[in-house]
Write a protein that binds this DNA or RNA. Structure first.
Lengths: 348, 348
DNA sequence: ATGAAAGCGCTAACAA
DNA sequence: TTGTTAGCGCTTTCAT
């Protein structure tokens, strides 16, 4: 037997479907006796309103879509957790998708967005930053873009200060006097990766190092996974003059680099210093603890959900209320850079 | 302007809505010229079929619901990742929810399940194991239950061999000759927690230790979070005779215990041995590396998605095809238990 | 190859 | 307070 509909309940309770509907939507507008009758019938039939039908009529789903570049690792885990937390508070559910790297992301976006499955969308697709402008099909759905370069301003942008974070940590490494300093950057065409590299480059150039068009052997490329960091570090270590310090564009790669260095019998930070980016949980679990750039992941997720829901709930009239938010990053000096365990830096 | 409907496209293209629909559902059944016309119109209007309406008619959504007890930590992160991976392969999307501990879970389940939002459900709600029998409202929706005691057999059950894992690792600790051995178990009423404790108890009892009704000071309780493990360890360490070894019911708590022990100036494993459960990623990142029980998380997630989709796709006639699957666990001997780094155990 | 029309299950005027 | 009815946007016979 197919799942019961409002019809079935109405019949069984001997009322009209409208009444049944009311029992669920404005219980007070129906006489108690009737309500009981309906509820009993519903109970007996094991009835629950079909959300699909409801959505069709109401033109909303109370679901917010979240599209991320991936799901693995602590970064996304925490991001999802924080989004879910505030979504839940506001009665929203989460529909999760990843852009799965391959396959045209925009296609995926369309599938979800245009289609009225979700009331709004949180999007983190760093590769969109590259050439896919206009990246998003014009669609009238509230959208929050995470870590994407500003578009023509019809969305809400929330960014993390990648540039400054990378700049600062590179300076810190420079202040230690390390040379050469290598960077393991993220994938090509990834906006985060590119911004972080720019910060690195700026700090280096400021010191007259690594000038434009200069030596690129100390610039390795990974894909933000631990394994890629491991591999990149291996390549770095096979250089005629291995780097004295390495800045990895995220903690996962930094940890990969950690293992590679250790496997080569190198002591960290005595023989090679390592710094990361993100400040995920493990960063403080490994030893030596990882010096990194703190990214307010939780805040990012909560803010994204908050802003999105705000827009969703605001009367549809005042269309998109674009805004740009920049979350600041900050240095987390720990041991892997060569600072003492107590956190005292050997400033230049 | 509201998002365009099939109507708008039909008008613009000068055809009937049926034709437009066909263009999307059986492209071959429409003349190429017409198809182009429609596609062009759709393009111009930026049209995309509304899934809600589609779902209403088709009675399916191609979405599978996933309900977990929480989202934080690597365990869930990896579980979600693996579920998503196979779901994606089969053209399904993920709708994620957590039972958020508080609030009647069953309520949440109902909201999603009964309501035709999802074509199937993967459920991991360990607290259901306790008294909520019948835990699930009878609903004709394919459901895969993760780590839950077998019900009256109308669902697919996938379990991880918690008992054996806990039993084995406890034996291992016993083989080291440690005494006393404490356990930091999971929360009350949590099926995983309880099964793991049983395994622990069985091994202990086998050696004549910790007999039934005996000394419970060595049995602490956490809630599977790192922090709770930390706190529990602190309590353990304040005992007149602190434990010589501690088995935490999951790695997160084990790591919390790690920090607590270290903070007390204790060397691991020389002064206190620690073992965990789950074999999450960090377990091998900390030092000393954590001896633990390997749980095939990825396999669990993939299997769950696979089985679920299998049932969803099977003709609805052959109703539920209940089955019970047990995924085996295994010891991962590393350093924190006192075995040498090379993995050679000091067997009794 | 295309169109007309009947639902899918529900909500929300509008009547009564 | 309750019932009637017109959609919501789409798929799918059944005609043409």
């Amino acid at each position: 037997m197919a799942s019961p509909t409002i019809q079935d309940v109405a019949e069984k309770a001997g009322v009209s479907i409208a009444t049944v509907s009311r029992v669920y939507n404005s219980p007070n507008s129906v006489k108690e006796a009737t309500r009981d009758k309906v509820l009993r019938a519903a109970e007996a039939l094991n009835y629950a309103p079909k959300l699909a039908a409801r959505a069709l009529t109401l033109q909303k789903t109370d679901i917010i879509g979240v599209i991320l570049p991936g799901l693995g690792g602590e970064f996304f885990s925490e991001l999802i957790r924080s989004i879910d937390q505030v979504a839940y508070q506001h009665g929203f559910h989460i529909m999760l998708s990843t852009s799965h790297s391959h396959r045209n992301e925009v296609d995926l976006l369309l599938r979800l967005m245009g289609q009225g499955w979700v009331d709004g969308l949180i999007l983190m697709v760093p590769v969109l930053g590259r050439l896919s402008m206009p990246p998003l099909p014009r669609i009238d759905l509230p959208i929050v873009l995470l870590n994407l370069p500003e578009t023509n301003g019809q969305y809400i942008h929330i960014n993390v200060d990648n540039y400054r974070g990378a700049y600062l940590i590179t300076k810190h490494l420079l202040d230690h006097g390390y040379n050469p300093i290598a960077m393991i950057r993220g994938p090509d065409g990834n906006h985060d990766a590119e911004t972080r590299e720019k910060g690195f480059g700026a700090a280096m150039t400021e010191r007259g190092l690594n000038p434009e068009g200069g030596d690129n052997r100390y610039l390795e490329r990974g894909d933000f996974t631990r394994r890629s960091g491991y591999l990149a570090m291996l390549r770095l270590l096979s250089l005629p003059v291995p780097p004295r310090a390495v800045f990895a564009a995220n903690d996962e790669m930094a940890i990969g680099a950690f293992f590679a260095a250790r496997q080569h019998g190198l002591r960290i930070p005595e023989q090679i210093a390592i710094a990361g980016f993100d400040d995920i949980d493990v960063a403080s679990c490994i030893s030596p603890t990882l010096t990194t750039v703190h990214v307010p992941i939780t805040e990012l997720g909560m803010m994204a959900a908050q802003k999105l829901i705000e827009v969703i709930k605001s009367t549809k009239e005042n269309g998109a209320m674009p805004q740009k938010i920049l979350l600041s990053t900050g240095l987390v000096i720990r041991e892997s850079c060569g600072c003492s365990p107590t956190g005292a830096a050997l400033q230049a």
